[in-house]
């Protein structure tokens, strides 16, 4: 069955990447307990933040235009969307580079960063699938607070585009970070720093409007907010339709820029790579 699926579509040179994504998803489904654990890890901070805001809203009704209901919905959506979109290609690349497993990959007729991104996509599909029941349970538990999205068909289309482009942006960021290991061999410290800052700059910690102004300016200049934050705001109905499509174009710009950065980092990095371990 796996061979049938893998040889399905799309054809041409992309088939091997498609197969890699399918095999990765099958592997993740076979060991779904891992996906459940990591989805729980993604959701716990969102629930924790909801609890803090519930305590905070005991003394007031609105914070920067957000009601408690908006805030609860914001964090639930952030939990599922960030969990479904955030791949960690960088850790896979770091591990393979450090252990010398990259060397045989370089002799194969594939683009290694693209292969890793596709494998991560398969894993994300499995993770998002097991995340949906958890999300449904949380929506049930917080049902008194959840705001149901009301979007026009154009708004929904904009959300789908924003979601797909957000995924590409986050995947490309992961692959660019992974390339650093070609120079440093071991870069997990850099990744941890990047993602802890990313938690702030992507709106995972707080809606960006609530950040101190200096930090907010940094957040608006970085690509993080075009990850989960933008699709979540679209779904909450906080972005007018015209601005959704402006945002989608900006996301597209980031995809192109990050693809170029990845290409440059990969070319320069593989020249420097020394093939440790193995």
């Amino acid at each position: 069955m796996s061979a049938d699926l893998a040889s399905a579509r799309p054809g041409l040179g992309l088939r091997k990447y498609w197969s890699a994504a399918i095999f990765s998803a099958q592997d993740a489904f076979a060991y779904r307990a891992t996906a459940i654990v990591w989805m729980l890890v993604d959701f716990i901070p969102s629930v924790v933040m909801i609890l803090v805001w519930q305590a905070a809203y005991r003394t007031q009704d609105q914070v920067e235009g957000y009601s408690l209901n908006d805030m609860v919905t914001y964090y639930l959506l952030t939990g599922i969307i960030a969990g479904a979109l955030t791949s960690h290609a960088e850790f896979t690349m770091n591990w393979e580079i450090r252990d010398g497993r990259l060397t045989p990959q370089l002799t194969r007729p594939i683009s290694y960063p693209l292969l890793v991104m596709c494998k991560e996509t398969g894993w994300l599909v499995a993770k998002a699938s097991v995340g949906l029941p958890i999300f449904a349970l949380l929506v049930f538990l917080f049902r008194g607070y959840v705001v149901v999205p009301h979007l026009t068909p154009l708004g929904w289309l904009g959300f789908v585009l924003a979601f797909v482009l957000a995924y590409l942006i986050l995947s490309l960021i992961g692959a660019c970070l992974g390339c650093l290991s070609l120079w440093t061999i071991e870069s997990s410290g850099v990744f941890e720093l990047w993602w802890s800052l990313g938690g702030v700059l992507s709106g995972g910690l707080l809606p960006l409007e609530l950040l101190p102004s200096a930090l907010r300016q940094v957040a608006f200049a970085m690509p993080h907010r075009w990850g989960s934050y933008f699709p979540v705001r679209v779904l909450l109905g906080k972005v007018p339709v015209s601005e959704i499509y402006e945002g989608v174009l900006t996301q597209l710009g980031w995809v192109v820029a990050l693809s170029l950065i990845l290409l440059i980092l990969w070319r320069l990095g593989t020249r420097k790579y020394e093939g440790w371990g193995g």
Partner: peptide
């Protein structure tokens, strides 16, 4: 280098 970054990222 990774040690120093881990040191800093620990604060993150």
């Amino acid at each position: 280098a990774s040690f120093v970054m881990s040191l800093i990222s620990g604060y993150g």
